[in-house]
Design a protein around this nucleic acid. Sequence first.
DNA 1: GTCTTAACCTGTGGGC
DNA 2: TGCCCACAGGTTAAGA
Length: 265
Amino acid sequence: MPELPEVENTVKKLKALNGCLVKGVFLFDPLVLKSGKSYLLKIKGSKIKGFFRQGKYIFCNLSKERCNFYLVIHLGMSGFLAIKEKDDVSDVAEYLRFLLVFNKGFFLAFCDIRKFGKVFITKKPLLTSLGEDPLSPNLTPAKIAYLFKEKKQKIKSLLLRQDLLSGIGNIYADEALWLAGIKPTRLGTNIKEDEWTKLYKAIKKVLQTAIKAGGTDLGDEVVPSGRYTPLVYGREGFPCSRCRAKIVREKIASRSSYFCSRCQK
DNA sequence: GTCTTAACCTGTGGGC
DNA sequence: TGCCCACAGGTTAAGA
Ligand SMILES: [Zn+2]
């Protein structure tokens, strides 16, 4: 469940764990922990101070003996976090990679079928490799133009780059471009001045709408999903809901891109 | 430097 | 039924 809206909703749910004390840590898949292994021992006995998000990364602020650190989780393609009560983790046991045990009988399970997800522990509450968060008030149409307009890459590829804007993935990139009426194959250098504003508005709108809907409906029985139904993503061969032309699929940056070749200019 | 592609991993569904 | 290919919400190293 892993683009910005899904991660944002995960973080909202995780906040129910604020104040919990960590009683135990189980690393079922040692390869999931990429760095900060020396902090692993510190987790036990630490207290949860809060959760926040940067791009698609989830930060869990932990504190122990006045030492502040962060358990950072990236869900990859198929990862999700589930809060469990009692010892009822049987339904997710098959893909369980990491488990935190709290007081009051709560558990936090990190499950991930495809193992693209990762966890690391750090003292820094910020990843400098990531670009601006699309929901940040600092983002403006001029900022997007500044980031993208010199780039000779397809606009879809630019939206997927986390070092420029962090949090947009394959679904919401297509959704935003459809809303903005921009073909995903256009180069950054070929986007017109007024289109940056359209793209800005489309990004904000689709992300906010999807967050309210609890994320995208993936129709997956294992991975939890929300009620946002994509307007163009995954709709190859179906009529465009704006102009009725057939939605086409094309590979861009080795990923499927869905768009309307009639009303996306 | 910039930009593109393929690999990482597991599972599912379609065609033959 | 089995086999092979394409595909899936992401990131990143390697190649051009
Ligand atoms: Zn259309």
